[in-house]
């Protein structure tokens, strides 16, 4: 029983370690070469659907690929520079709370035998829908405010 516990534990650690270590090396290379800056340049148009500019799309991309903490770091530095509106902040927060670290989280369950699409599709689609609702809500509120003003 004791050895069974140790064995299962080590097996679990090994299963994950062989994914996490190479992944972290690739992520460091990606960061050093600013791959995401380039990706963002051609990936930002679809973000307009959820009300995000090219500028606001970047922290989302960072969070989706590298994780919530990295994404939040980018958000904080942008907020300090006054580059994000409170509406954008809420949309970004909504998106990345649901959909982040999509490489690491996905691979963790993938090595246990869960198919890739079921790990990616639900999180991505719910994040898009929830952000779209927030975006629409802000538009609706704005519209109402201008109507009252007129």
């Amino acid at each position: 029983m004791f050895w069974e516990g140790i064995y299962n534990g080590l097996l679990g650690v090994w299963t994950i370690a062989r994914i996490v270590v190479p992944l972290m090396i690739v992520i460091e290379i990606a960061k050093a070469n600013q791959w995401l800056d380039r990706v963002n340049r051609w990936l930002h148009p679809p973000f307009r659907v959820i009300g995000l500019s090219e500028h606001a799309a970047f922290p989302v991309l960072v969070a989706v690929i590298f994780g919530l903490t990295f994404g939040s770091g980018v958000i904080l530095s942008n907020v300090r520079e006054g580059k994000l509106s409170s509406k954008e902040l809420r949309i970004i927060g909504t998106f990345i709370a649901i959909c982040h670290a999509m490489i690491e989280d996905t691979l963790l369950f993938f090595v246990l035998g869960v198919p890739l699409w079921i790990l990616i599709f639900p999180r991505l689609s719910v994040a898009i829908i929830a952000s779209m609702i927030v975006h629409r809500f802000y538009l609706w509120r704005q519209e109402k405010a201008t109507m009252i003003a007129n």
Binding site: I6, G12, I16, A17, V21, M24, I29
Partner: peptide, 28 residues
């Protein structure tokens, strides 16, 4: 860069071992 990645990977593995080993053990 490679070294930094390796370091982070090993650190994550250590974090993982610290959490996963006791969990597996307790559940067993």
């Amino acid at each position: 860069i490679i070294y930094r990645g390796l370091q982070k990977g090993l650190l994550s593995t250590w974090e993982l071992a610290k959490i996963l080993m006791p969990t597996v053990f307790i559940i067993t």
